[in-house]
Design a protein around this nucleic acid. Structure first.
Lengths: 148, 148
DNA sequence: TTATGTGCAAACTCTTTGCATTACC
DNA sequence: GGTAATGCAAAGAGTTTGCACATAA
């Protein structure tokens, strides 16, 4: 599928959702989804604001915050807070993954390990806990930084 | 070992560390360690400040922040940031564990699962990553809240 | 004695909120 | 036309910093 088509699917998802909630859509929301779609990294609200301003110079930072809250509540985006760098956002592409962060260069790697997910489920069950979601971040030194 | 003796060990650790770094100790730092030692939960800087003021009414919030940064850098305390509740601190009692949080009542359970730790190591190795530490939080509904 | 730690207040950063206006449906 | 979303600016919350004073070594 072309990237353009794929983006349209996310926009469509947004419109459907907004309608379902009895709310009104806006160009700003779609622009923010577009920025997240095009991003290949995790972005802070400030970074998202900078990028979306290229599409719409008048958009306010408050709108970015409000939209991100909305999108996160509706599970169209995920957020993750790294150490001291604050909250960052990424589009929910439906492929759950966790993160590995290099403490030296700050690079973020994504990974998915079936067995880890499974074990978490087991641990939760043992405690009688109904597991809904999780956050796992491995901190260390990436291969490149080890060779410096 | 009595709780009092145990606390003294932590205080001793603090003193040794301060000396090793060529710094000066203070009553305030020891009071903060004491508050963390007595706490059975994870505390915010604000909560720590409230509690330590009972021992020393003049202590400033800035001192709490400065001390926590110092203690964390030296691995005498650990911090963890929960969703929107901000950073919380706990004394490093040498028993590594991860956390499970109830999204309904906010209760925090601790757990440790050898196999999970092991798998994380494997995942990191696969990526050529040198694993130093990690953070894992399971979010869900605790047994009590499920029965409501 | 002298460098470090403290308390206070101001400054900063990040995020939220109130309100007048715009825009969607 | 009515309601929700926006942009702006002000307000809040949490944390850090500068500086004069206190204190440990």
């Amino acid at each position: 599928m072309s990237a353009k088509k794929e983006l349209e699917l996310y926009i469509e998802e947004l419109r459907t959702l907004v309608k379902k909630r009895g709310l009104k859509n806006s160009a700003q929301r779609e622009q923010i989804v577009q920025v997240l779609f095009l991003a290949d990294e995790h972005l802070t609200p400030e970074e998202i604001h900078q990028r979306v301003k290229k599409l719409n110079p008048n958009i306010g930072l408050a709108t970015v915050y409000r939209t991100l809250s909305f999108l996160e509540k509706e599970h169209l985006v995920n957020s993750i807070s790294f150490g001291s760098e604050g909250k960052k956002y990424e589009l929910n592409r439906g492929d759950h993954h966790d993160h590995m962060i290099c403490l030296q260069c700050g690079k973020i790697l994504e990974f998915y390990e079936e067995e880890l997910e499974h074990l978490q489920e087991i641990v939760a069950q043992k405690a009688g806990f109904k597991l809904l979601t999780h956050e796992m971040i491995l901190y260390g030194i990436c291969p490149e930084c080890q060779n410096k």
